[in-house]
Computed example of a mutant assay.
Amino acid sequence: MKLNSYKKILIIIVSRIGDTLLTTPAIKSIASHYGDAEITVLGHPKRYKVLQYLPFVHCTGSISKNSAFCKGRFGKIYDLAFVYGYDESLVLYALRVSKRTIAFKQGNSKIDDRLYKSVEFPTSKSMHFVDILMSLPKAINISATSKRLSLFLTKKDRIFAENILIENNLNNKTLVGIQAVGFPTKSYRDWPIEYFSELCTKMINKNPNVHFLIYGGCDKKEKKKISWLFDSLMGHATSLIGMPLRETAAVMSKTHLYIGVNTGPTHIMSTFDIPMIVLNHCLLKNSVYGAIGHPHYFSIDHPNDKKCSEDSTMSDISVKTVFEVVDSVLKSL
């Protein structure tokens, strides 16, 4: 089969929000390379919606390692498939439905030998994750067209966000989004919640028109932290805790500034040309996970770069350091 004869292409990415969005440069590059191809992307049931309506994707849907086992029993409907991750059931599904499949080497010769391209996962600790995920299309000489992450908001999404602002009388406020918590199981990445409260208080004292939108999920530990932050800012904050992904993204697009730790919603925010300040743990370096091509991206990295571990506390980043950056950005708005 000639490369230009790929007319139906499948891409599978079952992962967290951040990793899902970090594949969008690869997806866009594949779509650009095969301009006439129909691109289908399958993602995690709770996260695939961040990929909906992308102009270079024709169809999106959900799949999981459990549901994949029962799918694809009716022949090969795709010409080419790319599979991210190491769930064998997802790779086997792609092998059932696609004439050719490209994936990272699975460590199982019975599967790897069936792949059109079995790609070694890059081991460089300094390689940006966008470039790591580009390794699959690069295996067949597809170059990156852009390294900027992508998300597309519909008219319905934008109207939803506008209504949120109207309902909460926020249209005349300087809106600052706050993502104070990342993965509950990796809390060492989080800046102390008390520091966020102190920072926000300083911002209010400097500019009483500032209003905070508090983002967050429904995990009990996460919710407890961010609910405390919301309560400490009573009258100056609106809680968006538990709001679905697309709706949260839509509201994010209406803000003036974002401050957060490096986590999934931060990657969502990086798809908009809105100033953002990101606090990075030394195990989650900006050079590896930071936004590429964003016009107003400010990274504050943990000072302990040489002897970094999970014991390196984010409290080493002072409120003063962050406030100086925040103050400079707000003055430029």
Rank of each mutant, 00 (worst) to 15 (best):
S109T: 15
G75N: 08
L95H: 01
R100P: 00
L136R: 11
V119F: 08
S126N: 13
A94E: 06
K147N: 10
V130T: 13
T123I: 14
N141M: 02
L115H: 07
D131P: 11
L80M: 04
R114C: 11
D112R: 11
N108L: 04
K110C: 03
T154V: 08
L92Q: 08
R100C: 03
D79S: 00
N66I: 15
N141R: 08
T101P: 04
D112H: 04
V91Y: 03
L149K: 09
L80K: 00
L149N: 08
T123F: 00
V91M: 10
S143G: 06
R114A: 13
N66K: 09
K71P: 01
L151P: 01
K76R: 06
L115M: 09
N66C: 06
S109K: 09
K99T: 06
L90H: 00
F104E: 04
S146W: 00
P137V: 11
R114Q: 15
G75T: 03
V91T: 14
K76P: 02
P137W: 08
D113A: 01
I111G: 03
K65Q: 10
K125Y: 01
V130L: 06
I132K: 13
Y86K: 14
L115Y: 01
F152P: 03
L136W: 06
K156D: 12
S67W: 03
K105E: 13
S64L: 02
E88S: 11
Y84P: 01
I142F: 07
Y93F: 15
Y116W: 13
N66L: 11
Y84D: 02
L153G: 03
D131V: 12
A144Q: 08
F69M: 14
S118W: 09
F74N: 15
D112A: 10
N141V: 00
V97S: 05
S89L: 06
I77A: 08
A139F: 02
L115S: 01
S67E: 10
L90Y: 00
R73Y: 08
E120D: 15
K76T: 12
V83T: 03
Y86F: 14
L149G: 04
S126D: 13
K147V: 05
L153K: 07
T145I: 13
K71L: 14
Y93E: 11
E120H: 07
T101V: 15
C70I: 11
P137H: 05
D112T: 10
N108S: 11
K71V: 09
S118V: 09
D112F: 04
K110P: 00
A81L: 07
K71A: 14
K76C: 09
S146A: 00
D87M: 13
I77M: 03
Y78G: 07
D112N: 09
T101F: 06
F82R: 07
S126Y: 07
L133T: 01
K99G: 13
V83N: 01
S146Q: 05
G72S: 07
I102C: 08
M134P: 09
L92C: 08
P122T: 10
C70A: 14
K138A: 12
V91W: 01
Y86N: 13
A68P: 05
